[in-house]
């Protein structure tokens, strides 16, 4: 799944995405993170698919990783009569800043252009809402198995301060949370909770802020699209074939058609195909 920063995509990019989906007969669906799933590719098809996507200007969406996923946005002041600030512009800036960041669990952000909150920022690890007085920052929310509304962390921020706080917050989380621990559980298990977190990120109680910002800057400076790196490296491409000693694809991968698109065949449908014996 390629990255579509802030959910903003030009008609040309949409067409390019559609052409790849059509050429490789992929299942396509709009995701909750304002991008497009392309499912049903065989492992050997991934390099040519990504070659085409990258040529069209896309990059890896880090969609399966414990990493930054999406920064959702509403249309903001540019297109909405209620919009107070440019939520799309900020969402794109934040997504480009933190893309590729690896973390204890997936991280999702959102930016709303006003308090009507169409981007649902208060259910994200980091949520930003535009107000007349500046940006309000919310942290440690999530949807999922145990939904949690984010807590208000700071209000009336200018963009530079907002980004500084998010840098420090995410760095601190990445450095100190347990594996597979989301921001909400991380904060709830922290002695002193939200107030303590504020004292570390805003008041620099631990004297760590310089280091946290530096670490985030390093991540930003060393960003790479792993798919671009992979398709340019012959030795890495060796992994993208099903068999090491044959060009055959995996004959256990079977699709049927539903609503005009492919989907994996279920157990009953598989009986009608030639079944693969397992010794």
């Amino acid at each position: 799944m390629p990255r579509i920063t802030g959910g903003e995509i030009s008609p040309d990019m949409l067409i390019a995405l559609g052409q790849v989906g059509k050429k490789y007969n992929l299942y396509t669906k709009i995701t909750g993170g304002q991008r497009v799933d392309l499912f049903g590719a065989r492992v050997d098809q991934l390099p040519p698919i990504w070659k085409e996507l990258i040529a069209a200007g896309f990059e890896s969406g880090h969609a399966y990783g414990k990493s930054l996923r999406t920064v959702k946005s509403c249309v903001g002041s540019t297109w909405c009569r209620y919009g107070v600030d440019d939520s799309v512009g900020l969402a794109i800036e934040l997504e480009n800043r933190y893309k590729g960041l690896r973390s204890p669990h997936k991280i999702k952000l959102a930016v709303s252009g006003c308090t009507r909150e169409c981007a649902e920022a208060q259910s994200r690890d980091v949520g930003v809402i535009a107000t007349e007085n500046g940006w309000n920052l919310y942290v440690c929310g999530n949807g999922g198995m145990k939904p949690r509304h984010a807590d208000l962390f700071a209000t009336g921020l200018d963009k530079a301060t907002l980004i500084k706080y998010i840098d420090r917050f995410l760095s601190f989380y990445v450095r100190s949370a347990d594996h597979l621990q989301r921001t909400s559980v991380w904060m709830e298990n922290m002695e002193g909770g939200l107030d303590y977190l504020k004292s570390v990120v805003i008041d620099d109680k631990l004297g760590l802020c310089g280091q946290l910002e530096q670490q985030m800057q390093h991540v930003i400076d060393t960003y790479q699209c792993e798919w671009k790196t992979t398709i340019e490296d012959e030795s890495k491409l060796k992994r993208f074939r099903h068999f090491i000693n044959s060009e055959q694809p995996d004959d256990n991968v079977m699709f049927v058609e539903e609503r005009g698109q492919i989907r994996p065949a279920d157990a009953e449908e598989r009986k009608h195909f030639k079944l693969v014996e397992v010794a």
Binding site: I244, N245, Q248
Partner: peptide
């Protein structure tokens, strides 16, 4: 052709 500290599939 093997992947060190990982796997490959052979037919």
């Amino acid at each position: 052709d093997l992947q060190p500290d990982s796997g490959v599939c052979a037919l």
